[in-house]
C-alpha cells in the first residue's frame, strides 16, 4: 500500500513530482530515531513480559515461573474490569470535553477581535506549566474551605454551601476530566487552528453565496477539511489521555472508592503499593496489547487517504 507519489498540497499543485523510492537513504534518515525509540521501548517491554510470567512480588526479589497464570487470574478480577471501565470513561470524557474546549478556542481565535494576538499567544499557558503546578492550582481553587470556585458559586447563589469537588465518585471523576481537559485543550486548539488556516478561504465564500450559515459551514466545510488533523489528534490524543497518570495520582490517588483508578493507576498501585510486580507487569502487557489493537483498528478505519 505504499503511495509512491507524495501528497500534493494545493500550494505545490503543478510541481514536478520526481520523488523516487529511495530505500537505503530513507532508512538512513529515520533509523537514528527508530533505533532510539526501539531500544527504550522494546527492551523494557521485554523485561515486563518476562516478569509477567513469574510471580515476583517485590521488584528485585525472585519468583516462581507460573507461565500464563497471571494472565488467566487477572482477566477475571473485578478490579481490572473496574479500572478498564474507568479508563474507557476517562477517554470518552476527555475526548468530549477537549473537543468542545479546543474547538471553542480555535474557532474563537480564528475570528478577528481586539486582543486576538495576545489571546492566541497566551492561551497555551495551561499547557506549558508543569503538571505539579496544575495540581496546585486546582487543588486550591477547588478547595471547599478556601477555594475561589466554591466561594464564587456561593456568592452568585448557585450553591447554598460549599461542595467537595472530589468528595463523591462522580464529582471526583468529572473534576479530574475537566482539569485534564483544561491542561490539554489549548494545545489541541492550536493544532486545529493550523488545520483551519489551511482550508481554502474560497470555499467559505462559495458556500456563503449558496446561502449557508456559519453552523452549516462548520459541519460541511470546516469539519471535513480537518480530517487528517483530527485523525492524528484522535489517535495520539486518545493514547495520551489514556496514559495520564500524574494528575490523577497527585490529586485523588485513584479515589474515592477507586472511582478514578484508571489502568495506569492500577498498574502503579499493583506494583508499588500492593507489591505485586509480576501482576503489574501482566497488567502492563495486557494494556499495551489493548492500546495497540485500538491503534491498529483506528488507523485502518480512519487513516486519511493521502492520494489526490
Amino acid at each position: 500500500m505504499n503511495k509512491l507519489k507524495s501528497f500534493q498540497h494545493p500550494y505545490t499543485r503543478g510541481a514536478v513530482n520526481s520523488v523516487k523510492k529511495n530505500n537505503i537513504e530513507g532508512w538512513l534518515f529515520v533509523s537514528p530515531l527508530v533505533i532510539w525509540i526501539c531500544l527504550i521501548i522494546l527492551v523494557p517491554i521485554y523485561i515486563a513480559f518476562e516478569l509477567s510470567l513469574f510471580n515476583v512480588k517485590i521488584i528485585g526479589t525472585s519468583g516462581k515461573f507460573v507461565g500464563i497464570d497471571n494472565y488467566i487470574k487477572l482477566l477475571g478480577k473485578s478490579k481490572f474490569l473496574n479500572a478498564s471501565l474507568n479508563s474507557l470513561y476517562w477517554i470518552i470524557g476527555n475526548a468530549i470535553c477537549q473537543t468542545f474546549f479546543a474547538f471553542t478556542i480555535a474557532l474563537t481565535i480564528n475570528y478577528k477581535f481586539p486582543g486576538k494576538k495576545i489571546m492566541a499567544n497566551w492561551i497555551i499557558l495551561s499547557f506549558i506549566i508543569p503538571t505539579v503546578v496544575v495540581v496546585v492550582i486546582w487543588k486550591l481553587m477547588l478547595s471547599s474551605s478556601s477555594g475561589v470556585i466554591n466561594s464564587v458559586l456561593i456568592d452568585i447563589g448557585l450553591f447554598d454551601e460549599a461542595t467537595g469537588f472530589f468528595s463523591s465518585p462522580n464529582k471526583a471523576f468529572i473534576s479530574l476530566v475537566l482539569i485534564n481537559s483544561w491542561r490539554w485543550s489549548p494545545f489541541l486548539a492550536l493544532i486545529i487552528l493550523s488545520g483551519l488556516n489551511s482550508i481554502n478561504r474560497e470555499m467559505y465564500d462559495a458556500s456563503k453565496v449558496d446561502g449557508a450559515n456559519f453552523i452549516q459551514q462548520f459541519f460541511f466545510i470546516t469539519f471535513p477539511n480537518l480530517k487528517s488533523v483530527l485523525f492524528v489528534l484522535g489517535l495520539v490524543g486518545t493514547l495520551l489521555s489514556f496514559n495520564i497518570f500524574d494528575i490523577i495520582w497527585l490529586i485523588t490517588k485513584g479515589g474515592p472508592s477507586s472511582a478514578t483508578t484508571t489502568l495506569p493507576l492500577l498498574i502503579y498501585e499493583t506494583a508499588f503499593t500492593k507489591f505485586r510486580i509480576s501482576q503489574a507487569a501482566t497488567l502492563s502487557i495486557i494494556t499495551s496489547f489493548l492500546l495497540l489493537l485500538f491503534s491498529i483498528i483506528f488507523i485502518k478505519l480512519m487513516a486519511p487517504k493521502e492520494d489526490d
Binding site: 474551605s145 460549599a162 461542595t163 467537595g164 472530589f166 468528595s167 479515589g255 474515592p256
Partner: peptide
C-alpha cells in the same frame, strides 16, 4: 466534617483548622 474532606491529607486539615474553618 468539611465537604471536601474526602480528598484531604494532613495539610488541608491543618489549613481548615488554621483558618477557623474547622
Amino acid at each position: 466534617s468539611a465537604p471536601d474532606a474526602a480528598n484531604w491529607t494532613w495539610g488541608e486539615a491543618e489549613a481548615c483548622f488554621a483558618s477557623k474553618g474547622c
